[in-house]
Write a protein that binds this DNA or RNA. Structure first.
Lengths: 342, 342
DNA sequence: TTGAAAGCGCTAACAC
DNA sequence: GTGTTAGCGCTTTCAA
């Protein structure tokens, strides 16, 4: 390990004061062109970069945005984090990523961690903010933190000043149902998976029932099956339950993983997608096109989603206002899991 | 935004000097129990955390480890990053994650970025380090950086002092081939996907041929098909090519994504897995159990892999030695994509 | 324009 | 045990 080169070394070699070097570094003041060139040359020669810690000590900026999500292995979070990172990079920020693995305690810890790391802003992707009813202790924690660091969330956290960016659940489900309504053979609609204490899912279900009424389609309670796990197992269990009560024409799956489980249950029952039963899902992760048939799925424009998250965060960092709530418009991507209209 | 509370405020309120507060903060020196308790109380009351930047300025430690990978959306990287993060957290470190998206230029940039952020160590997951023949410019860059910051890699970077942690390609392929040899009906073995300029893949292929000879099985050049893309398309293309030349008994796929593509090609040709053709793949990501039939796949013990990466990094950070090269032992996970022995 | 010097918040060596 | 003080590397007044 070499001795770190500092602004002092540069100043010495250039025969100027450190302030002058600092001026060319920040560009905040005029320096005589000739000197400036000489200094820049030396900076380049050593590939010198000012110590970001020392800088941060002064203007209390680290140019790091912390992201807290449940599990980056979930393609939904991966897709979102990646677009966040790109948007952040474009604006000179870096991402510090943390996974809570759905552990509320760990989420608390990581929140602390992030604030201790002096990140400039924190983005909370779901987690406690996904809860239908806000955990007060958590909200209090976030409140303490957001006194110092702007916090942007997906979901909702009552009693906190956090900016919220969310998928428009109502629009998502409306699109699904409108699409379904164009196919006359779809009479019995099922909804598989998702928890009743997760705000987005609750929004989906509420709209599901509303649209059913609106479209004069029957709501069959036995075909509306929740499940604690947003994964394959959840889908498998939910579909097994549904099939005990009959055979729907189409099943709406709360996410792609659930759809995979639903397909497995269907396969176990010798039912073919989409010939016997059609499928629509939410999230449109890469899983949609990985499995056969490819899933017709609601897509979220992850690029816009991520950019919005970062944009709000940066605005808040810079003391500018950011919208309290922003809704992301979903779009239905039609593939093969849904029988063609008739 | 509230005024930041500092060590001075704590000292003032406790009626002691800042050094005393610092002592209870670091625990590096004895403080009278009574005072200690009083100070701790005030610290807790304000939920005070010492400014990590100021601390870092002194001991030049940020407690952040930077990870550079191609694309976190790839389940292989996601699995690895997650275990790295856990290992890092357990040791008081945080992760700064960057994705290069396979763009060599961006990789350069991010490397710079990370070093500018003063991360304590950098972990390079593949990227340029995956190259069979080292990119000299890149190696030079890494050399400059590793003068200041320890760099740990998967892959190889000739001419750099980086510690390397790698999957044992030879052992992985040996296990696959030994397993294959237990099934007497397997005579014609194919290998699908992977590039000839990626070091791990090259290792796999070399061992593939060696084992074929050793097991007195025929090497059929037309059944050994590379492909630039480690994804579904790559697998589909490779398998289409193989099928033009005949029907192998089993195809070894360079990774899970490739296996998915291979299965699609097979389905297009009305061939069933494993009844008509068996499949084995590498990586054992969640995709292995997502698709039907579940893939028999070589698994890497991601927990050990991640821990090893972090352990080496931390050792280097602390000036302790770390092994130049560590090999991770793979294990074959037997599922359904491979016909049972006969 | 430029340099000297104060100070960001903290730790550690040095006195007492 | 405890306080005083000198930095860590940088930015930013304040004078010149």
């Amino acid at each position: 390990m070499q001795k770190n080169i500092t602004i002092v070394d540069i100043a010495k070699e250039a025969g100027v004061s450190i302030s002058t070097v600092s001026r060319v570094l920040t560009g905040n003041a005029r320096v005589k062109e000739e000197k400036k060139a000489r200094i820049q040359e030396i900076i380049d020669k050593y590939d010198f970069h000012p110590n970001i810690l020392a800088r941060g000590l002064i203007n209390t900026r680290t140019h790091v945005i912390g992201i807290l999500c449940a599990d980056i292995r979930n393609p939904y979070y991966a897709a979102l984090c990646v677009t966040c990172e790109q948007a952040a990079n474009e604006n000179g920020y870096n991402i510090m990523l943390c996974n809570s693995f759905g552990d509320r305690l760990k989420e608390f810890e990581l929140l602390d961690n992030l604030s201790r790391q002096r990140v400039d802003a924190i983005i909370l992707l779901g987690g406690a903010a996904d809860d239908l009813v806000t955990d007060h202790e958590y909200a209090e924690k976030v409140n303490m933190i957001s006194d110092q660091i702007p916090v942007v969330i997906t979901g909702r956290l009552d009693g906190t000043p956090c900016s919220r960016i969310n998928i428009d659940a109502t629009e998502a489900m409306t699109q699904v149902m409108n699409y379904i309504s164009t196919i006359s053979s779809f009479k019995k609609i099922a909804f598989a998976g998702g928890r009743s204490d997760v705000i987005f899912t609750v929004g989906l279900r509420a709209c599901f029932r509303k649209m059913l009424r609106q479209l004069k389609l029957e709501y069959i309670p036995e075909f509306d099956v929740s499940n604690p796990h947003y994964d394959e197992t959840g889908g498998l269990e939910a579909m097994d339950t549904i099939l005990k009560h009959g055979k729907p024409d189409i099943v709406i799956c709360v996410n792609d993983f659930t759809a995979v489980g639903v397909m497995k249950s269907l396969a176990n029952h010798q039912l073919k997608v989409p010939d016997d039963i059609s499928l629509i899902s939410f999230d449109d992760t890469f899983i949609s096109t990985l499995i056969t048939p490819h899933l017709t799925s609601i897509s979220y424009n992850y690029v816009q989603f991520g950019s919005q998250l970062i944009e709000s965060a940066i605005n808040l960092i810079e003391g500018k206002p950011a919208p309290t709530e922003t809704l992301i418009h979903p779009t239905l991507v039609i593939r093969e899991s849904c029988k063609k209209g008739a």
